[in-house]
């Protein structure tokens, strides 16, 4: 019976860790690995502190998960929508003229082009400040996803590890549930290490487009969970959400590029 608990926890936790991995990979590939990994570590640290502080009492704090899902989901959604908008305009061959993000990116790129000895002290300070800003955003996104998914795993562990469903047949079920979740984490981390290199071969614009769709998809899903909506198919609905959002972006690209061609 213990092995069934470990297996069930492993399977359920794998789904959650893969969701966190998707966001961390997306952040790392497009905004830099250092802040993405720092955010991941901080997320695990926060998770460890919450689990250590509340232990099994966490099961009674389901509202905490709901609030985090809602807040993190909405933040990710807002972040993702801006990425998608930029990606759509880029794909349609149009760039927002008054887009502050574009201006920010152009300024950073221009400063980075200068050799370090060509930069004035003011340029150096400006570049450092701008890089720090971008790093903070990347760190925040990966931190949020790891904390949220980690908390979901903690709830799964408690559900399987302390549940009465298995009656007296399981001895030390909590240990096996924790083992299943940790094994899932190791497997997903290895998967991430294996796929991150091939993903760097994907063209930058395509990657940013996909990341925008992913961030919007996960943001919508988590915000919905926090609001209490019922996603048909539960976690599987993520695929449907991604498809709908991707199709909507393709229609936008076609429409905007068609309009540009008509005015040219």
């Amino acid at each position: 019976m213990n092995w069934i608990i470990a297996l069930l926890t492993f399977l359920a936790a794998t789904v959650e860790w893969v969701e966190a991995l998707t966001i961390v990979l997306a952040t790392g590939l497009t905004m830099g690995w250092r802040p993405a990994l720092r955010g991941t570590l901080l997320g695990f640290l926060a998770l460890a502190l919450i689990v250590a502080a509340f232990g099994l009492l966490l099961a009674k704090l389901a509202f905490l998960k709901t609030i985090l899902q809602l807040v993190i989901g909405l933040l990710l959604l807002l972040f993702g929508l801006r990425w998608v908008a930029k990606a759509v305009l880029r794909s349609a061959g149009r760039v927002g003229l008054h887009d502050e993000d574009q201006i920010f990116e152009r300024q950073v790129a221009a400063l980075r082009k200068l050799a370090p000895d060509q930069r004035s002290a003011e340029d150096q300070a400006k570049l450092a400040a701008m890089t720090a800003q971008a790093d903070r955003a990347a760190q925040a996104v990966s931190f949020q996803s790891v904390l949220l998914e980690g908390l979901e795993v903690a709830f799964i562990v408690i559900t399987f590890g302390v549940s009465d469903h298995f009656g007296q047949a399981a001895a030390h079920p909590l240990g096996f549930a924790v083992g299943g979740a940790l094994l899932a984490l190791v497997v997903v981390a290895l998967l991430g290490a294996a796929v991150h290199r091939p993903l760097t071969q994907v063209p930058e614009n395509t990657l940013k487009y996909i990341v925008g769709v992913f961030l919007t998809t996960f943001g919508t899903f988590w915000a919905g969970e926090g609001l209490g909506v019922a996603w048909p198919g539960s976690d599987l609905s993520l695929l449907g959400l991604a498809l709908v959002i991707w199709l909507a972006t393709r229609m936008l690209v076609l429409r905007i590029s068609g309009r540009a061609a008509r005015t040219a």
Binding site: L81, G96, G224, S237, I245, A248, I256
Partner: peptide, 30 residues
């Protein structure tokens, strides 16, 4: 959701997100 239709709420949320996406993109185009 509070009115008791959580699945409809899911579809409305998705619809709202898509409309927001369209609006945000067109505003950035201006």
């Amino acid at each position: 959701v509070r009115l008791g239709a959580p699945t409809l709420a899911a579809f409305l949320l998705l619809l709202g997100v898509v409309l927001t996406m369209i609006n945000t993109t067109y505003r950035k185009l201006r």
